[in-house]
Nucleic acid binder design. Structure first.
Lengths: 116, 116
DNA sequence: TTTGATAGTTTCTTAAAGGAAACCGGTTTC
DNA sequence: GAAACCGGTTTCCTTTAAGAAACTATCAAA
Protein backbone atom coordinates (compact mmCIF):
# COMPACT_ATOMS: atom_id res chain seq x y z
CA UNK A 1 0.00 0.00 0.00
CA UNK A 2 1.41 3.33 -1.04
CA UNK A 3 1.39 6.08 1.57
CA UNK A 4 -0.54 8.39 -0.69
CA UNK A 5 -3.30 6.00 -1.61
CA UNK A 6 -6.63 5.92 0.10
CA UNK A 7 -6.46 2.55 1.85
CA UNK A 8 -9.84 0.79 1.65
CA UNK A 9 -12.01 3.86 1.80
CA UNK A 10 -15.15 1.87 2.66
CA UNK A 11 -13.78 0.33 5.84
CA UNK A 12 -12.11 3.63 6.58
CA UNK A 13 -15.27 5.69 6.43
CA UNK A 14 -17.11 3.09 8.51
CA UNK A 15 -14.37 3.60 11.03
CA UNK A 16 -14.81 7.38 10.95
CA UNK A 17 -18.56 6.96 11.19
CA UNK A 18 -18.23 4.83 14.31
CA UNK A 19 -15.97 7.40 15.89
CA UNK A 20 -18.38 10.16 14.97
CA UNK A 21 -21.28 8.21 16.49
CA UNK A 22 -19.41 8.02 19.76
CA UNK A 23 -18.45 11.68 19.62
CA UNK A 24 -22.03 12.71 18.86
CA UNK A 25 -23.33 10.81 21.84
CA UNK A 26 -20.90 12.63 24.11
CA UNK A 27 -21.19 15.94 22.28
CA UNK A 28 -22.43 19.17 23.76
CA UNK A 29 -21.44 21.04 26.82
CA UNK A 30 -23.38 18.97 29.33
CA UNK A 31 -23.25 15.28 28.45
CA UNK A 32 -20.02 14.60 30.31
CA UNK A 33 -21.05 16.48 33.48
CA UNK A 34 -24.39 14.66 33.45
CA UNK A 35 -22.88 11.22 32.94
CA UNK A 36 -20.20 12.00 35.47
CA UNK A 37 -22.74 13.06 38.07
CA UNK A 38 -24.96 10.07 37.43
CA UNK A 39 -22.01 7.71 37.65
CA UNK A 40 -22.21 8.13 41.43
CA UNK A 41 -25.82 6.94 41.57
CA UNK A 42 -29.38 7.83 40.66
CA UNK A 43 -30.50 11.41 41.06
CA UNK A 44 -33.69 13.43 40.70
CA UNK A 45 -34.10 16.27 38.20
CA UNK A 46 -33.80 19.02 40.76
CA UNK A 47 -30.77 17.39 42.34
CA UNK A 48 -29.10 17.29 38.93
CA UNK A 49 -29.89 20.97 38.39
CA UNK A 50 -28.27 21.74 41.72
CA UNK A 51 -25.29 19.41 41.23
CA UNK A 52 -24.33 20.51 37.75
CA UNK A 53 -23.22 24.09 38.13
CA UNK A 54 -24.62 26.40 35.49
CA UNK A 55 -26.97 24.07 33.66
CA UNK A 56 -30.45 25.34 32.80
CA UNK A 57 -33.57 23.18 33.03
CA UNK A 58 -34.03 23.30 29.28
CA UNK A 59 -30.56 21.96 28.60
CA UNK A 60 -30.75 19.30 31.29
CA UNK A 61 -34.06 17.99 30.03
CA UNK A 62 -32.91 18.01 26.41
CA UNK A 63 -29.65 16.23 27.11
CA UNK A 64 -31.32 13.67 29.37
CA UNK A 65 -33.78 12.88 26.58
CA UNK A 66 -30.95 12.25 24.15
CA UNK A 67 -29.10 10.08 26.64
CA UNK A 68 -32.27 8.11 27.30
CA UNK A 69 -32.87 7.67 23.59
CA UNK A 70 -29.40 6.20 23.26
CA UNK A 71 -30.06 3.81 26.11
CA UNK A 72 -27.42 5.31 28.38
CA UNK A 73 -29.82 6.68 30.98
CA UNK A 74 -32.99 5.29 32.52
CA UNK A 75 -35.81 7.62 33.57
CA UNK A 76 -38.16 6.49 36.31
CA UNK A 77 -41.24 8.41 37.43
CA UNK A 78 -41.93 7.81 41.08
CA UNK A 79 -45.42 7.87 42.53
CA UNK A 80 -44.66 10.41 45.27
CA UNK A 81 -46.62 13.39 46.62
CA UNK A 82 -45.24 15.88 44.09
CA UNK A 83 -44.21 13.51 41.30
CA UNK A 84 -40.47 12.98 41.31
CA UNK A 85 -38.36 11.60 38.51
CA UNK A 86 -35.20 9.62 38.98
CA UNK A 87 -32.43 9.37 36.46
CA UNK A 88 -29.71 6.75 36.50
CA UNK A 89 -27.02 5.36 34.26
CA UNK A 90 -27.89 2.04 32.65
CA UNK A 91 -25.38 -0.81 32.41
CA UNK A 92 -24.85 0.38 28.88
CA UNK A 93 -24.18 3.88 30.13
CA UNK A 94 -21.50 2.50 32.39
CA UNK A 95 -19.87 0.84 29.38
CA UNK A 96 -18.60 4.28 28.38
CA UNK A 97 -16.26 4.24 31.38
CA UNK A 98 -13.14 3.06 29.49
CA UNK A 99 -13.51 5.73 26.81
CA UNK A 100 -14.15 8.45 29.32
CA UNK A 101 -11.18 7.38 31.40
CA UNK A 102 -8.88 7.36 28.39
CA UNK A 103 -10.03 10.84 27.44
CA UNK A 104 -9.54 12.05 30.98
CA UNK A 105 -5.99 10.78 31.26
CA UNK A 106 -4.99 12.00 27.81
CA UNK A 107 -6.53 15.38 28.59
CA UNK A 108 -4.67 15.59 31.89
CA UNK A 109 -1.25 14.95 30.43
CA UNK A 110 -2.08 17.27 27.54
CA UNK A 111 -2.77 20.08 29.96
CA UNK A 112 0.55 19.47 31.69
CA UNK A 113 2.30 19.40 28.35
CA UNK A 114 0.74 22.68 27.28
CA UNK A 115 1.59 24.39 30.58
CA UNK A 116 5.35 23.93 30.31
CA UNK B 1 -19.95 8.91 50.81
CA UNK B 2 -23.65 9.30 50.26
CA UNK B 3 -24.91 8.69 46.76
CA UNK B 4 -26.54 12.08 46.60
CA UNK B 5 -23.55 14.09 47.69
CA UNK B 6 -21.20 15.79 45.30
CA UNK B 7 -18.04 13.76 45.81
CA UNK B 8 -14.96 16.00 45.81
CA UNK B 9 -16.22 18.56 43.33
CA UNK B 10 -12.74 20.00 42.70
CA UNK B 11 -11.14 16.78 41.51
CA UNK B 12 -14.36 16.00 39.72
CA UNK B 13 -14.43 19.19 37.69
CA UNK B 14 -10.74 18.81 36.87
CA UNK B 15 -11.69 15.43 35.51
CA UNK B 16 -14.48 16.93 33.41
CA UNK B 17 -12.16 19.64 32.23
CA UNK B 18 -9.60 17.11 31.04
CA UNK B 19 -12.27 15.20 29.17
CA UNK B 20 -13.54 18.40 27.62
CA UNK B 21 -10.01 19.34 26.53
CA UNK B 22 -9.72 16.06 24.71
CA UNK B 23 -13.16 16.43 23.15
CA UNK B 24 -12.41 19.97 22.04
CA UNK B 25 -9.26 18.86 20.29
CA UNK B 26 -11.18 16.24 18.36
CA UNK B 27 -14.28 18.40 17.92
CA UNK B 28 -15.71 19.53 14.63
CA UNK B 29 -16.73 17.65 11.59
CA UNK B 30 -13.28 17.21 10.08
CA UNK B 31 -10.69 16.51 12.78
CA UNK B 32 -11.20 12.76 12.78
CA UNK B 33 -11.13 12.38 8.99
CA UNK B 34 -7.99 14.52 8.86
CA UNK B 35 -6.19 12.62 11.60
CA UNK B 36 -7.38 9.36 10.13
CA UNK B 37 -6.07 10.26 6.69
CA UNK B 38 -2.75 11.50 8.03
CA UNK B 39 -2.33 8.37 10.13
CA UNK B 40 -1.33 6.60 6.91
CA UNK B 41 1.49 9.03 6.21
CA UNK B 42 2.31 12.59 5.22
CA UNK B 43 0.15 14.28 2.62
CA UNK B 44 0.08 17.56 0.74
CA UNK B 45 -2.77 20.07 1.03
CA UNK B 46 -4.29 19.22 -2.32
CA UNK B 47 -4.05 15.51 -1.64
CA UNK B 48 -5.90 16.02 1.62
CA UNK B 49 -8.61 17.99 -0.18
CA UNK B 50 -8.99 15.12 -2.63
CA UNK B 51 -8.82 12.37 0.00
CA UNK B 52 -11.31 13.83 2.43
CA UNK B 53 -14.60 13.78 0.61
CA UNK B 54 -16.57 16.99 0.94
CA UNK B 55 -14.10 19.15 2.79
CA UNK B 56 -13.59 22.74 1.61
CA UNK B 57 -10.21 24.46 1.52
CA UNK B 58 -11.25 26.89 4.22
CA UNK B 59 -12.19 24.15 6.64
CA UNK B 60 -9.11 22.06 5.90
CA UNK B 61 -6.78 24.97 6.45
CA UNK B 62 -8.56 26.03 9.64
CA UNK B 63 -8.59 22.56 11.15
CA UNK B 64 -4.96 21.92 10.21
CA UNK B 65 -3.98 25.15 11.95
CA UNK B 66 -5.72 24.05 15.12
CA UNK B 67 -4.14 20.62 14.98
CA UNK B 68 -0.73 22.20 14.44
CA UNK B 69 -1.30 24.56 17.35
CA UNK B 70 -2.01 21.59 19.57
CA UNK B 71 1.15 19.87 18.41
CA UNK B 72 -0.65 17.00 16.74
CA UNK B 73 0.33 17.86 13.19
CA UNK B 74 3.56 19.15 11.64
CA UNK B 75 3.49 21.45 8.62
CA UNK B 76 6.48 21.50 6.28
CA UNK B 77 6.86 23.86 3.34
CA UNK B 78 8.85 22.24 0.56
CA UNK B 79 11.02 24.26 -1.81
CA UNK B 80 9.51 22.87 -5.00
CA UNK B 81 8.53 24.53 -8.31
CA UNK B 82 5.04 25.53 -7.18
CA UNK B 83 5.50 25.54 -3.41
CA UNK B 84 4.03 22.44 -1.86
CA UNK B 85 3.20 21.90 1.78
CA UNK B 86 3.32 18.59 3.57
CA UNK B 87 1.30 17.72 6.62
CA UNK B 88 2.01 14.80 8.91
CA UNK B 89 1.03 13.50 12.31
CA UNK B 90 3.58 14.11 15.03
CA UNK B 91 4.49 11.45 17.58
CA UNK B 92 2.11 13.29 19.86
CA UNK B 93 -0.59 13.07 17.25
CA UNK B 94 -0.12 9.33 17.14
CA UNK B 95 -0.63 9.20 20.90
CA UNK B 96 -4.35 9.70 20.26
CA UNK B 97 -4.51 6.23 18.74
CA UNK B 98 -5.80 4.43 21.88
CA UNK B 99 -8.61 6.92 22.39
CA UNK B 100 -9.61 6.85 18.77
CA UNK B 101 -9.57 3.08 18.72
CA UNK B 102 -11.73 2.85 21.82
CA UNK B 103 -14.22 5.28 20.32
CA UNK B 104 -14.27 3.34 17.08
CA UNK B 105 -14.96 0.01 18.72
CA UNK B 106 -17.59 1.41 21.07
CA UNK B 107 -19.22 3.19 18.14
CA UNK B 108 -19.25 0.01 16.09
CA UNK B 109 -20.98 -2.10 18.69
CA UNK B 110 -23.34 0.78 19.43
CA UNK B 111 -24.41 0.86 15.81
CA UNK B 112 -25.06 -2.88 15.87
CA UNK B 113 -27.01 -2.52 19.09
CA UNK B 114 -29.15 0.27 17.68
CA UNK B 115 -29.88 -1.66 14.49
CA UNK B 116 -31.55 -4.63 16.16
C1' DT C 1 -57.40 29.59 48.10
C1' DT C 2 -53.01 30.87 47.73
C1' DT C 3 -48.44 29.25 48.04
C1' DG C 4 -44.67 26.08 47.15
C1' DA C 5 -42.46 22.04 45.16
C1' DT C 6 -41.41 19.15 41.11
C1' DA C 7 -40.46 18.52 36.36
C1' DG C 8 -40.42 20.23 32.76
C1' DT C 9 -41.73 23.42 27.96
C1' DT C 10 -41.87 27.74 25.25
C1' DT C 11 -40.16 31.86 23.42
C1' DC C 12 -36.70 34.91 22.25
C1' DT C 13 -32.07 36.11 21.37
C1' DT C 14 -27.11 35.59 20.66
C1' DA C 15 -22.89 33.05 19.48
C1' DA C 16 -20.46 29.68 17.03
C1' DA C 17 -19.93 26.29 13.29
C1' DG C 18 -19.98 25.31 8.69
C1' DG C 19 -20.52 25.74 3.52
C1' DA C 20 -20.14 27.97 -1.38
C1' DA C 21 -17.86 30.84 -4.21
C1' DA C 22 -14.75 34.21 -5.38
C1' DC C 23 -10.34 35.98 -4.80
C1' DC C 24 -5.05 36.21 -4.16
C1' DG C 25 0.11 35.71 -4.79
C1' DG C 26 3.79 33.27 -6.44
C1' DT C 27 5.61 30.20 -10.02
C1' DT C 28 5.81 27.74 -14.18
C1' DT C 29 4.58 26.00 -18.51
C1' DC C 30 2.58 26.91 -23.06
C1' DG D 1 1.56 37.31 -22.16
C1' DA D 2 -2.21 33.86 -20.95
C1' DA D 3 -3.46 29.95 -18.47
C1' DA D 4 -2.69 26.63 -14.91
C1' DC D 5 -1.10 24.79 -10.38
C1' DC D 6 -0.56 25.19 -5.42
C1' DG D 7 -1.92 26.68 -0.95
C1' DG D 8 -4.38 29.15 0.93
C1' DT D 9 -7.79 33.70 2.57
C1' DT D 10 -12.03 36.54 2.29
C1' DT D 11 -16.75 37.35 2.06
C1' DC D 12 -21.31 36.19 2.56
C1' DC D 13 -24.83 33.28 4.04
C1' DT D 14 -27.37 29.46 6.58
C1' DT D 15 -27.68 26.20 10.28
C1' DT D 16 -27.02 24.70 14.86
C1' DA D 17 -26.02 25.20 19.83
C1' DA D 18 -26.80 27.48 23.83
C1' DG D 19 -28.56 30.70 27.41
C1' DA D 20 -32.10 33.57 30.02
C1' DA D 21 -36.51 34.18 31.41
C1' DA D 22 -41.11 33.30 31.58
C1' DC D 23 -44.63 29.98 31.53
C1' DT D 24 -47.26 25.37 32.42
C1' DA D 25 -49.42 21.33 34.85
C1' DT D 26 -50.03 18.63 38.85
C1' DC D 27 -50.34 17.97 43.48
C1' DA D 28 -50.24 18.98 48.56
C1' DA D 29 -49.85 21.55 52.61
C1' DA D 30 -51.07 25.81 55.12
Amino acid sequence: MNENDKPDSAACSAHHMAIRDTMDILAGKWKIPIIGTLSFGKKRFMVLIASIKGIAAKMLSKELQELELNGLVRRTVLDTKPVTVEYELTEYGHSLRPIINEMASWGKQHRERIMK
